[in-house]
Structures are given as C-alpha cells and as structure tokens.
Design a protein around this nucleic acid. Structure first.
Lengths: 209, 209
DNA sequence: CAAGACATCTGTACGGCGCTTAGATATGAA
DNA sequence: TTCATATCTAAGCGCCGTACAGATGTCTTG
C-alpha cells in the first residue's frame, strides 16, 4: 500500500493518468501529426475510456495546453544551451537559429504551441522565483548583455519583438517549397537559416563584427 | 434561356453555388470565427444540403483553399494600394504595414490563408500573363526599385524572405496581450507596428533617411 | 420537339469527434 | 469498518466530414 510503485507521487488507482495522457498525446503528435490528435485517440493510446481525461483536464484545449507547456520548456532549454555554446556577439543569432531549428525538428509540437498561443492571444510567461523566465525574456536579456541600453525600455522591447516575430515567421515558413532551391544553393537548411538571420539588421552587435 | 439572369455565366440550375458557398464561408468566418467554419455550416448558410458542396469542391480543404485564395487577392490589392500611396524609400515599410494591418483587420481570414499555406507547405504563387504576380514577389520587386542589386539574386531573395517572415510573425503576434502596454505607450496599434518595422534593419533604404 | 446524357442537388447513412451524465470501483480518512 | 471522495467506465447527445443512391433540373443531339 505505502510502497512506491515507480518514481514518486502515484496519487491514485490507475497511476498518474495525467502524466500518461500528456505522454500519449506527444507520442501521437510525433507519429501521426497534429490532425490526428483527438481526445479520444489520446485516451485510446493511454488505454483508458474516452471520458477518463475529463477528470484531469477541463477540456481538450487544456490537455493541449499541457502539451504546449512542455514544448515551451523544451524550447527554452534548447535556446539556453545554444546561448551558452555561443560566444559574445554570436549569442543572439545563436538564439534565433536554435529557435527555428527547434520548430523545424518538432513541427507538430511547435504548431500545438502556437495554436494555443493564438487562442489565448498571448505567449506563455513562465515565472520562476518571481522572475520572468520565458524564452522571450531570454532574448531581451541577451540584447542587454550585448550592449542594448536597458534604460531605453521601449527601444529594447521593440527590438525584442522584432527579433521574436522574425524568428517565428521563419520557423513557420522555413519549410516552404519556395525556398528549396535557395536552400540547396546555400548548402542546406542550417546555412539558409543563418543567411536569413544575417539579413535581419536587428542585431547591431551582429552587424558590427 | 439565353438571357443572362444576373451578371454572367450562371451555369446551372441553382445559380452559382460555388460562388455562393465561398461567400457563405466568408460570411461565417467573419461572424463566427474560424472554429465555426464547418462544411455543414457553410452549406446551411448557403441554404443547400450538406452533400451539395461536394459537387464543387473535392473536400473541405478545397473549399477553404478557395476562401484563402480570395484572401490572398485582397491582401495583394491592399499592399498594392499602400505601395502606390507611399513615396520612395517609404514604399517598403508601407508594404509591411499594409500586410500586418490586413492580417489584423481580417484575423479569421488570415488564419485560413496561412493554415492552407502550412498544409501545402508553400505560399500561393499567382501567375498573371506568365509572370509571378504574388504579394511576395511584390516585396522583392520593391526592394529592387529601392536600390537592391537584382544581380545579387541570393542576397535579394534572402532579404525578401527575412522581410516576409518578420511581417508574418508580427501579423500573428501583434494582438498578443504582452504588447498591450507598449501599444498604449506608443499611441495605438499602428504606431506600434511602425515602430517594430523601424527596428527591423532589413531595409537599408529605410535606415538611411 | 423528343429523348437521352449529364450536371446538380437531396436524403440517408456511417464512423469519429468533444463532451455530459449516471453509475461502478478503488482509495484514503474518520 | 465505514464512508466520503477521487477515479474510471458505459452509454448517449449532437455535431462533424464524407459517401452513395436516387431525384430533379439542364443541355445536347437527333
């Protein structure tokens, strides 16, 4: 009874269904794509009845929110890693590249993430220790580290917005067939992405060196 | 029999149902939003049975394609008008503003347009007289008019892509709540959009004056 | 003008969907 | 042990996209 079956907190009589449902959703998302992600299919994949998820999520959107949330965490981590690996003025473009690469490597997940954002009309803001720890905030912080004046709050915010919008746009369109030839000429997708970012003049420090 | 009932080409016995369906879809899109746009609802709005649309469209996606197509035409026209109204170096940012404003004023339509593009993994290319007459092409042409070297084909294309991606990203995110305060500080949405575009350094001619 | 070919539309049906409700079952606290 | 409560199942509602058979109107051809 009191013995822990697997890791921690197995609150009730079926295991941790909430966790299992999110995992099942991510599995389906990868294997079948976003259009196959029905609540019933997720329940099926998790081996429970179609009504079971409603004890853990108010509705389908709330389940997708949970999936999206994990996506944002993954994106944040990917950007964090890329920033650490880059040097000085390259940190900012490294963030952009990491952002777009994440979206391109996880297209279905990225779509769920932004569908949720569009519905809520807001990017997710993740607070840790009372501080905004979102990926968006990370871009702004990096701009300051690279020389943007934090006292010029409006300019700083506008530059961050411009950068984020460009990243999102590129993330959604990098796979479009129109660009196939250009990608081939430039030697693949990653060089293509870097080249596009180099044509964005929003990073003064980028243009300088 | 040979008398024209309304304008031209009334091919058959119910009128021009294809036209009526697209109109009904656009009406529903405006009044109820994209989530209410079911094939059955469109048929209902047009006053026909749920199966009738299948004689004019292969499936729901094809109907939405037709709606999206009209959206792209409207966007193209809005951009064309804006370009004509602007002077010299301002033509490019005028295009960007017009693009984002169109998306913001027709959010549901814009969503249908890009959902279709994402599914096809391609922007629509509209040919007239054998020439690419798409809105995307219009941006590239404008860059050339403003001094970009058409011989540097790769650079020109990259700059166009960067500009388009930034426009799309901003179009999707301009309504996010995170930006409400900033928009208020800047005196509304349009000044906000202009400010973001000014922070995109992709337009050398923009930065110059 | 008659007759058949054809395009167009309706009626009906199928399976899947999101979600609700009622009832079964297991868990944890008194 | 009892009982409230959390969790899950079974069944069902109305909606969806789509298919198909048949009715109805239009056009062509003789």
């Amino acid at each position: 009874m009191s013995e822990a079956k697997s890791v921690e907190s197995r609150p009730y009589h079926h295991g941790d269904l909430r966790r299992a449902l999110v995992d099942a959703a991510r599995r389906l998302l990868e294997s079948e794509g976003p259009s196959a992600l029905s609540l019933r299919a997720v329940a099926r994949e998790a081996g429970v009845s179609p009504a079971a998820p409603y004890h853990h999520f108010k509705d389908k959107a709330e389940l997708l929110d949970a999936v999206a949330h994990e996506g944002w965490e993954m994106l944040h981590q990917a950007m964090d890693t890329a920033k650490s690996a880059a040097e000085g003025a390259h940190k900012l473009s490294a963030l952009g590249i990491a952002y777009v690469c994440f979206a391109r490597e996880n297209p279905a997940l990225y779509r769920v993430m932004y569908d949720a954002a569009r519905d809520k009309e807001a990017l997710p803001i993740e607070m840790h220790d009372g501080k905004d720890d979102s990926a968006y905030c990370m871009v702004r912080d990096t701009m300051v580290e690279l020389g943007s004046d934090p006292a010029q709050a409006v300019d700083l915010e506008l530059a961050t917005i411009a950068a984020w919008c460009a990243g999102h746009g590129l993330a959604e369109m990098a796979g479009f067939k129109q660009f196939d030839q250009l990608k081939a000429e430039l030697g693949g997708e990653k060089p293509f992405l870097e080249a596009v970012f180099n044509h964005l003049g929003l990073f003064p420090s980028l243009n300088r060196d």
